[in-house]
């Protein structure tokens, strides 16, 4: 059972490892240097976008769900209080 689960993974690793070695052996300099100013700017832009998404999730999802839960709880409490 365990062999059948791991067999595709082992095949994948057996194929990927030589490919990775070949790529590492034939790599040329990437010439993708980013200076500190551009790097920090890009990082802070990405952090800003992520923060905006998190804040938007909080504003558009968390608070309405919280309000809904509170309303449901309040409705349940009031209906339980009315029953004899």
């Amino acid at each position: 059972m365990r062999m059948t689960v791991f067999a595709p993974l082992m095949c994948l690793l057996a194929g990927a490892a030589p490919a990775a070695l070949l790529l590492a052996a034939t790599a040329v300099p990437a010439q993708a240097y980013v200076g500190p100013g551009l790097g920090l700017g890009a990082a802070s832009t990405a952090l800003g976008v992520v923060g905006a998404i998190l804040l938007g999730l909080m504003a558009f999802v968390w608070y309405p769900v919280k309000r809904l839960l509170r309303m449901v709880r309040r409705a349940g409490r009031s209906s339980a209080g009315r029953k004899p």
Binding site: L38, L47, V49, A52, I53, L55, G56, M58
Partner: peptide, 24 residues
């Protein structure tokens, strides 16, 4: 009020970060 502030700040933060990235 927190929800309203978070909504406004999320839009403002997204706009400012995109503007800063575009300027860069």
């Amino acid at each position: 009020s927190k929800e309203r502030a978070a909504r406004l700040l999320a839009m403002r933060l997204m706009g400012r970060s995109l503007a800063a990235g575009a300027g860069l």
